[in-house]
Amino acid sequence: TKVFYNGTYVEFNNPEKAKKYAEKVAKKVGGTFTEKNGQFHVE
């Protein structure tokens, strides 16, 4: 499961961990995250 952010991504074996990371990054940058095709995108 990949989490895309700012033109790069971090890959996780565990979708649950990926979601938590996406939430954390989104919170940090004051943005939101969306799930597309089983991957997370932070905006």
Rank of each mutant, 00 (worst) to 15 (best):
F12I: 03
Q39A: 14
N6Y: 10
E35Y: 13
K28R: 13
V29G: 05
T8K: 12
V10Q: 07
T34D: 05
K2M: 09
V10R: 12
N14D: 15
A22Q: 01
K36P: 01
E23T: 07
V25N: 02
N37K: 07
E16H: 11
G31F: 04
F40S: 02
N37M: 08
G30H: 10
K2R: 12
T32E: 06
N14K: 07
P15W: 15
K27C: 10
H41S: 05
V3M: 02
E35P: 03
T32N: 08
Y5R: 03
G31H: 04
V3D: 00
F12G: 00
V29M: 10
K17S: 15
K2W: 08
K19Q: 09
Y21S: 01
K19S: 06
N14A: 07
K27Y: 09
H41M: 08
A18N: 00
F4W: 15
K36C: 09
T1F: 15
N6E: 08
E11C: 13
A22M: 02
E43M: 14
K19D: 02
A22K: 01
G30W: 05
F40R: 00
K2C: 12
F4N: 03
P15M: 13
K27N: 12
V10N: 04
H41C: 12
Y9F: 12
P15N: 08
V25Q: 07
F33I: 15
G31S: 06
K19W: 07
F12K: 02
N37P: 03
H41Q: 06
Q39T: 09
N6L: 12
Y5K: 02
N13Y: 10
V10K: 13
T1I: 14
F4S: 03
Q39Y: 09
E16W: 09
T34P: 00
V10A: 07
F33H: 04
T8P: 01
E11L: 12
P15V: 13
N14W: 05
F4M: 04
E11W: 14
K20N: 11
G7D: 07
T32K: 11
K17N: 13
G7Q: 06
N6T: 04
Y9C: 08
F12T: 01
K36L: 11
T34I: 14
A18H: 01
T34H: 13
Y5P: 01
Q39G: 10
A26R: 01
K36E: 08
A22R: 00
T34V: 14
F33P: 04
Q39E: 14
F12P: 00
K27G: 08
F33K: 03
E23N: 06
F33L: 14
K24F: 15
F33G: 01
K36R: 14
G7Y: 05
E16L: 11
G7P: 00
V10E: 06
K36Q: 10
K20Y: 08
K27D: 08
G7W: 05
V10W: 13
V42P: 00
P15A: 13
H41I: 13
K36Y: 10
E43A: 10
F4A: 02
V3H: 00
T8F: 13
K19M: 09
N6K: 12
E23I: 11
T1C: 12
V42H: 03
T8N: 11
N14E: 10
A26W: 03
T1V: 14
T34W: 13
A18K: 00
G30S: 07
K2V: 08
A26D: 02
G38K: 05
N14L: 07
K20Q: 14
Q39V: 13
G31D: 02
P15I: 13
F40T: 00
A18Y: 00
H41F: 15
Y9E: 07
H41Y: 15
T32Y: 14
K19F: 08
N14Y: 05
E16Y: 09
G7A: 05
G7N: 09
A22G: 03
K24G: 09
T8E: 09
P15F: 15
A18I: 00
K24P: 00
Y5F: 13
K19H: 07
E23L: 09
G7K: 05
E23S: 08
G31Y: 04
K24Y: 15
E11G: 06
K2N: 04
E11I: 13
G30A: 06
E23K: 09
N14S: 14
G38S: 05
V42D: 01
E35W: 11
T1E: 02
E23R: 08
Y5M: 07
V29S: 07
K20T: 10
V3Y: 00
T34N: 07
F40N: 02
A18M: 00
T32C: 11
F40H: 02
K20D: 13
V29P: 02
A22Y: 02
V29T: 10
N13T: 13
N6R: 12
T8V: 11
K19V: 06
E43T: 14
Y21R: 02
G31P: 01
E11M: 12
E43V: 15
G7R: 05
F33N: 04
G31W: 04
V10I: 13
T1Y: 15
T8L: 10
E23M: 12
K2H: 05
A18F: 01
H41G: 02
E35F: 13
K28W: 14
Y9K: 04
P15Y: 15
K17L: 15
F33W: 14
Y5T: 04
T8H: 13
N14G: 06
V25H: 05
N13F: 11
N13A: 14
N13K: 13
T32G: 05
V29Y: 12
G30I: 03
V29D: 04
K17Q: 15
T32V: 12
T34G: 05
K36M: 10
K36T: 09
T32A: 07
V10Y: 09
K24L: 15
F33C: 14
F12V: 02
E23D: 07
Y5S: 03
Q39I: 12
E16R: 09
G30P: 01
E23G: 05
V10S: 06
N37V: 04
T32F: 14
V25P: 01
K2Y: 10
K28H: 13
V25M: 14
K17E: 15
A18G: 04
H41A: 05
N13H: 11
A26K: 01
K27T: 09
V25F: 12
T34C: 13
Y9S: 08
E11D: 06
